[in-house]
Design a protein around this nucleic acid. Structure first.
Lengths: 332, 332
DNA sequence: AAAACTATTGTAAACGTTTACTGTAAGTGA
DNA sequence: TCACTTACAGTAAACGTTTACAATAGTTTT
């Protein structure tokens, strides 16, 4: 379709080799005069390099494929920004593929789209790969890393937050603020990703360290969604004991918040709330949500870095408590 | 790097031509027996087609590049879902490129990433292209469409909402609810995209039709952001006249809502609010925001459809009022 | 039984690049 | 002057596919 180096060669009288050399800037292989002529012709004709051809012959690519699941993960934006930043620094390109909402077929389609062309590597943003698709990815001779999701199986490299620590920190913070009856809501402890299980473990550890016996119905599992928050609050409403809850995501937290309002419970006066994630959503609701904040940007940056420089290690990014308005200090 | 059809040819004893034919399913050009053998070998060796090579020789591609600007456009998700849906139906692939936040360089990088390889077309999601980048796009011989942004220049094809009508509808609705002093906040009327200007025009028309003289400071421009909402509310606070405002995006609306709370104004009792967009954000704040709701999903679907079937027309998708809790009916 | 067709396969060129190998002319050092 | 570099440019093969064309064997038609 478009203009090729052949056209430029014809136009300028040079061979395609020479044209290719100036256009891909192989310094030392052409004179300045030649370069000027060739470049002029290139812009005049509106030349655009065909990367497919380049990648075919060089057998390498500078594009990183990022797979995200479209389930409303409102934190994928900062992760992607981190990736973009690192990619730009390393002169890589980034393409993003949507893998649907935990749907094997569209997950597979996204993966294929990525793998069926030369790419430098793939980054998976909190996508919990189906076994078959993981196989697909493994057999492709392409480096890959998971971001914002970790595994027991340490054969899989990831950059994520330490979910055990998240659960632990949130719980300890609440205890420090005087709470003893602490709920944990909206986390998924069935999934093959062990995010939920780890958070639960951290929560239990903090409770145990403070000699607080865990009551079974303090834990309300869910899929990190807004609706899970609504439901969890509903279930908590008939247990007067609970004075604070930890929510598995900002959306869960907001769900809880809104359902609490419907039940005429005021936050933080009647119930304290700390949420996990700390995205911008925490700041646009009232009251603003105190959170265990993850460093998503850095997660993306680091994930890209490890992928690009082929470091095999896993990493945890920092996590911190951001105090806002949803936790009340209890005094005895 | 990977397994090629040559390897399969060697493995099975057939020529590469035959292998290619069965693998790309050119029915009628091979026997079932052959197909079985070849396919078996392909899966055994873990063959993965190199699309770059295919696209090179066939001179066509099945991938649609979607360019989005990363500025927190919380409505891009449903648009992308619509695109994905149509693409899946038409057996196309979708890749997404982030064009930064109104930054010419990263916009250019995204565009180049797309154009430097064979693609079927490009879809631009509410990205206001810099002139130079528009030229770049035009000279590439690739079909493109804009989504969720419209232009005076009708040479540029788009699928969007009718912003004139949006402004008109919102205003008329408020008037019907008894309001006479109506603000318009957070819209950008400087941009080359005429979204803001059109909304303003619709607003003015509705006002004029109802013989309401427009006061200059009813209009608070901005860049559709949360902060713009905060600021607008601040500016409204010393004009007691205003009883309702139209906000240029859900985030602007939420900004207004929160700033109003800070000023001890209750919505909708002290001030009514209707926002433009109607994304999920309207439903997770308190009170839930009444909105002029755009059909983003359909916008994406239609944009993809027009691109794929090469229809040159522009289109407006439907827009409707979603009554929620932020508008109060005034009775005289 | 010759002619004509059908089904299946192979040969080789093409897509747009890059790059190892050559070639050539001018410059350098003795 | 001659051997040796150096700077620049051209030739051709290669990357992994697809596909027009040709070839073969078998089958059908007459």
């Amino acid at each position: 379709m478009g203009v090729t180096i052949k056209d430029i060669a014809k136009e300028t009288g040079f061979s395609v080799a020479t044209v290719s050399r100036v256009l891909s800037n192989k310094v030392g292989f052409f004179s300045q005069d030649t370069a000027a002529v060739v470049n002029a012709a290139a812009t005049k004709l509106g030349y655009k390099k065909n990367m497919a051809a380049t990648e075919l012959v060089t057998q390498k690519s500078s594009v990183i494929a990022v797979i995200v699941n479209s389930t409303k993960t409102n934190f994928s934006d900062p992760i992607i920004e981190g990736i973009q930043q690192k990619a730009a620094e390393s002169d890589k390109r980034v393409i993003i593929l949507y893998a649907g909402d935990h749907d094997a077929t569209s997950q597979r389609r996204a993966l294929s789209t990525a793998l069926e062309r030369p790419i430098a590597g793939v980054l998976l943003l909190s996508v919990d790969l189906f076994e078959e698709n993981l196989q697909l990815l493994k057999t492709a001779q392409v480096p890959f890393r998971f971001i914002s999701i970790s595994f027991k199986d340490s054969a899989l490299n990831y950059v994520a937050s330490d979910d055990q620590q998240i659960g632990y920190l949130a719980t300890k913070y609440l205890i420090k603020m005087g709470h003893r009856c602490i709920g944990l809501a909206g986390i998924d402890i069935e999934s093959s990703a062990h995010t939920g299980k780890m958070r639960l473990a951290g929560y239990k550890r903090a409770l145990a360290e403070n000699n607080i016996p865990l009551q079974k119905n303090w834990i309300q599992t869910g899929n990190y969604s807004y609706e899970a928050g609504l439901l969890a609050m509903q279930n908590y409403s008939n247990q007067k004991c609970i004075s604070a809850v930890i929510t598995g995501s900002d959306l869960v937290g907001i769900g809880l918040l809104n359902q609490a309002a419907k039940l005429h419970l005021s936050i933080p006066d009647d119930l304290s709330l700390i949420t996990i994630d700390g995205t911008y959503l925490c700041r646009i609701v009232q009251p603003q949500l105190t959170s265990v904040t993850q460093d998503f940007y850095h997660m993306g940056y680091l994930g890209a870095e490890y992928l690009i420089s082929d470091q095999q290690q896993n990493a945890f990014t920092d996590v911190k408590i951001s105090e806002r308005e949803s936790v009340k200090k209890l005094t005895l």
